[in-house]
Write a protein that binds this DNA or RNA. Structure first.
Length: 293
DNA sequence: AAAGCACCCAACCGCAGAGTC
DNA sequence: TGACTCTGCGGTTGGGTGCTT
């Protein structure tokens, strides 16, 4: 596998984006849609590498980005999802509408890992919730070699929150695979009539992992005691009814995402059950197996 | 007031999977 | 089949900002 030349190319800008660059990128994507990142900078008149453009769009400029103020329920979900999935930020982000993997990663590194370390509720190396927090915290020795800077007293801005709900999960008898929903940018596609459309198929997930998951999508929508996470068979109602393109003008981003704690809780429960089920009973698909690594 | 420290987060880097030729 | 490109992911860095001393 070769590596595409990227920012090492001479003459390309690096570092913080200027408002002008943001405007150029946004304008281009609104006109032509996402994708073709390699050629996008040139076409958009940007002196950036495609990778940088993609990152800027995905993590900052996308219209459905929800910035700042991680809600307590999101905070809680991140912690528990991390205990199940480890550092699979994109998967975790996929369950937190409007949040990017980068944001969650940053939030984890700056807030949550610290918090859990102090609370001793998770082994930050194995990502498993600890049964005996005190012992584990003691054995850890308080070293975190990955951090380039030592924190004093665990950080002055560290916000402690009362959790204590890790063992609240009621026993479930049925297991359902989580819906492989990846909340992505609204894929704006130009149509012949010069109107923009939302490509629901692309938006449902296009990463390599989601592609693996896709065969599960249908099966995972079986009616469950856990509760149907979304509406109809669309998961979060992200698709139009006929799974065809819909006019972007009809879309309001916030209305397509689960925002209440109940849905986030359901999502977590799906993962939780998946990871706790008896492997012998089921033939796990590749997605499920990947979660169990 | 200013120097040093700690924190936050946008952005970069390198790797790897998938697709294409 | 292998080389190459495109894309996405996770780890890491470094500059800006605010707090402490």
């Amino acid at each position: 596998m070769g590596r595409a030349p990227c920012c090492s190319k001479v003459g390309l800008h690096k570092g913080p984006w200027t408002p002008k660059e943001d405007a150029l990128l946004t304008k281009y994507i609104q006109a032509h849609g996402e994708g073709q990142w390699k050629s996008l900078p040139k076409k958009a008149g940007l002196l950036r590498c495609g990778k940088s453009c993609r990152l800027r769009w995905m993590n900052y400029l996308r219209p459905d980005i929800k910035r700042g103020n991680i809600a307590p329920e999101e905070d809680d979900l991140i912690i528990r999802m991390h205990s199940l999935l480890g550092n699979r930020w994109s998967l975790i982000a996929g369950r937190l509408p409007g949040r990017t993997d980068n944001e969650i990663k940053n939030y984890w590194n700056t807030h949550l890992s610290k918090k859990l370390k102090i609370q001793g509720t998770e082994d930050t190396d194995t990502h498993k919730m600890l049964e005996n927090p005190q012992e584990e915290a003691a054995s850890d020795g308080g070293n975190n070699n990955k951090k380039k800077k030592k924190k004093k007293n665990g950080g002055k801005k560290n916000k402690q929150k009362n959790k204590g709900k890790e063992n609240d999960e009621p026993p479930k008898t049925q297991v359902y695979l989580p819906k492989p929903i990846r909340v992505k940018a609204m894929y704006l596609q130009r149509t012949d009539s010069n109107t923009f459309t939302f490509d629901s198929n692309s938006a449902s997930g296009s990463t390599s992992q989601e592609k693996e998951e896709s065969p599960v999508t249908k099966e995972s929508n079986v009616v469950s005691e856990v509760g149907n996470v979304g509406e109809e068979s669309d998961g979060f109602g992200f698709f139009s009814e006929d799974h065809d393109l819909v006019n972007v003008s009809d879309i309001e981003c916030h209305s397509y995402f689960p925002t209440d704690h109940g849905n986030l809780q359901q999502l977590y429960e799906e993962y939780f059950q998946l990871l706790n089920m008896d492997h012998g009973q089921f033939e796990l698909n590749s997605f499920a197996e990947s979660l169990l690594d």
